[in-house]
């Protein structure tokens, strides 16, 4: 009987980091969009926030694509 602690440890590490990164990025993206809407209501615009938001969402989409790749491969 041999428990593969290394594999279990890496599953834990990777899951924790990936979850935190993804959730964090996605939340930042939402926050960015929220800035845009706030600005739009006062007639202004928030180009930096919007660009940042789309970058965050793009990173999340890439992660989802990688997930699908992992399932197919």
């Amino acid at each position: 009987m041999k428990i593969d602690w290394a594999a279990l440890g890496s599953v834990f590490g990777v899951s924790l980091v990936a979850t935190v990164l993804l959730v964090g990025l996605f939340t930042l993206g939402i926050a960015g969009l929220s800035q845009k809407e706030k600005a739009a209501r006062t007639g202004g615009s928030a180009p930096l926030a919007v660009t940042g938001a789309y970058l965050c969402f793009a990173a999340c989409a890439a992660a989802v694509a990688f997930g699908i790749y992992l399932i197919v491969a």
Partner: peptide, 13 residues
């Protein structure tokens, strides 16, 4: 941890 972070970062959303 994920939930904590999303509440923290998204508090002003």
């Amino acid at each position: 941890v994920g939930a904590r972070i999303t509440y923290k970062l998204g508090s002003k959303t």
